[in-house]
Every structure is written in C-alpha cells, then in structure tokens.
Computed example of a mutant assay.
Amino acid sequence: MDDTELDKKLKSVGKAAFVSNYDLFQNFTAGRISRADAIETLVRQKVSNEAGAAIRIGNAKLIFENGRELDALDLVVQSNRLNNDIRDLARKLR
C-alpha cells in the first residue's frame, strides 16, 4: 500500500474515527472481535450506519494488514482540520 492509497483508505475510514476507534480496528484485524460486533459498536456509537461501518472497518483492516497504522496516525497528527484532542490521542497511540 503506497502513501496515496493509505491516504485514500484513511479518508474512507475517517481520520477522527480511525483514532477514536483505533483499538476496535486493531482488535478486529487481529481476529479478537467479529465483523458483526465491530459494525454494531460503530453503529451504537453513532459513528455511521451499518453500511458505512462495514466500509470503515474494511478499510481500517487494510491499513493494519499492510502495517501502515503508524503512518496513518502520523497523517492524523499532521492534519490541520482535526481538533487538538484527536491529534493528541493520535500522538499517544503513536
């Protein structure tokens, strides 16, 4: 996965959603949580509807499977459009 594809996948997940649900995406990728449970969690948190949640977890999984999660966090930290809380959380996860 090159930088352009990473950026595209991260935007599809949502930068704030990627950081806020980092553990969920990590656990889903590792097989510790089912796809259905991951989708249900995002819907329950009002991150998105079921279809949107499925897209988010799929793209987040691709980021993790390609070992680009730290690069994704770096993109979040560098983003000027996100609030400081999200960027600070990304720094801590990094």
Rank of each mutant, 00 (worst) to 15 (best):
M1Y: 06
D2M: 10
D3I: 09
D3K: 08
L6N: 01
D7T: 10
K9R: 03
K9W: 02
L10R: 00
L10C: 02
V19M: 12
V19A: 11
V19T: 15
Y22C: 05
L24W: 01
L24H: 04
F25A: 11
F25H: 07
Q26F: 07
Q26H: 14
N27C: 01
N27P: 01
N27M: 08
T29P: 03
T29E: 14
T29C: 12
G31E: 02
R32N: 10
R32G: 13
I33S: 03
I33H: 00
A36S: 15
A38L: 09
I39W: 02
E40M: 08
V43D: 11
V47Y: 00
V47T: 10
V47M: 06
S48E: 02
N49Y: 12
A51I: 00
A51H: 11
G52D: 04
A53F: 04
A54I: 08
A54T: 06
I57E: 06
L62E: 11
I63E: 12
E65F: 07
E65G: 05
N66I: 12
N66D: 13
E69W: 04
L70R: 15
A72I: 00
A72R: 01
L73T: 03
L73K: 01
D74W: 00
L75P: 05
L75G: 05
Q78D: 15
Q78K: 14
N80T: 15
N80C: 02
R81K: 14
N83R: 14
N84G: 08
I86C: 10
I86G: 01
R87T: 15
R91F: 11
L93I: 05
R94W: 03
